[in-house]
Amino acid sequence: MGQSLDVLKTCDGSDGHDAKPGSATSANRGSAMWDDDVVVNCAALEEGVKSVVASANRGGARISDEVLLNHELLQYARQGNLRGVSEALDKGAWTETRRPLVMKPQKPDAGKKGHGEDPAVVGMTPIMFAAQKGSVDCVKRLLQARAEVNAVEEDGWSALHFASKEGHLQVCQELLECKADPALANIDDQRPLDVADEEMSFKEKFKLICKDLPA
């Protein structure tokens, strides 16, 4: 059973999945992105063991329904599955969850200011995955649920960085209209435009969108 949980930990994005080409840590994480087959295999694996995991012990503590629900939200966002994202949110999944199978707590404690030194920026949030996938509908749904549009992961990449890198113009526009910061720099001092798809037409359109933003 421990082996199954290790596999789920990997599917949760903790090894190689979210490395960015050219980022400071991509060399340490292996290949830039998983291919589609690996994502499909992980999804199939999770479905097959979900009922077992729900009643399993991990470090002496039962994996809660909340953890599994947040994990499902991440998986659906990664796949661009609008129905799955909506259902998970309707059930109470947390928009800012990151690697819920390995990160605790699931949500910040009420009354505490900021995130302190906890791993609050380690891993990608659902909106980052949806933006990377290019799913405008999932991004919109997450924004409706008040997802943090300018949240960043450990390398300082935001949802806008991921959408720009993959050349998803509609997603970029949606994010920018919802106050995504085009000047936000990652740890390599790169703004979303700096990591943009090399196709010049995309960059020009991206610039025009930013220019048309209300002051």
Rank of each mutant, 00 (worst) to 15 (best):
M1T: 11
M1K: 12
D12H: 04
G13K: 00
G13M: 01
G16V: 06
D18C: 10
G22R: 01
G22W: 05
S23L: 04
A24M: 09
A24T: 09
N28F: 15
G30E: 03
D35Q: 08
V38A: 12
V39N: 07
N41K: 14
A43Y: 10
A44L: 11
A44E: 12
E46H: 09
E47R: 07
V49S: 03
V49N: 05
K50E: 14
V53D: 07
A54V: 04
A54W: 00
A54Y: 05
S55K: 15
N57V: 10
A61S: 15
S64L: 11
D65C: 09
D65F: 08
V67Y: 02
H71G: 06
E72S: 14
A77V: 07
R78S: 04
R78G: 06
R78C: 01
Q79N: 06
G80Q: 01
V85K: 04
V85P: 08
S86E: 15
S86W: 01
A88I: 00
R98N: 00
V102I: 13
V102L: 11
M103N: 13
P105Y: 09
P105S: 08
K107D: 01
P108Q: 07
P108Y: 02
A110M: 03
K113I: 09
G114I: 03
H115A: 14
G116T: 00
E117T: 14
A120N: 10
V121S: 10
M124P: 00
M124I: 01
M128N: 04
Q132R: 09
K133Y: 03
K133N: 09
K133S: 08
S135K: 13
D137S: 12
C138M: 04
V139I: 07
K140D: 12
L142M: 01
L142F: 01
L143Q: 01
L143R: 03
A145F: 10
A147H: 02
E148G: 13
V149L: 02
D155C: 11
G156S: 01
G156W: 10
W157K: 08
S158D: 04
A159F: 00
H161N: 06
V171W: 02
V171A: 02
C172L: 06
E174R: 03
E174T: 11
L176I: 08
A180R: 02
A183E: 11
L184R: 10
D188M: 09
D189F: 04
D189K: 08
L193S: 05
D194H: 08
V195S: 11
V195F: 12
V195L: 05
A196F: 05
D197N: 11
E198K: 12
E199V: 15
S201P: 05
E204C: 11
K205W: 05
F206L: 15
L208N: 10
D212T: 11
L213E: 00
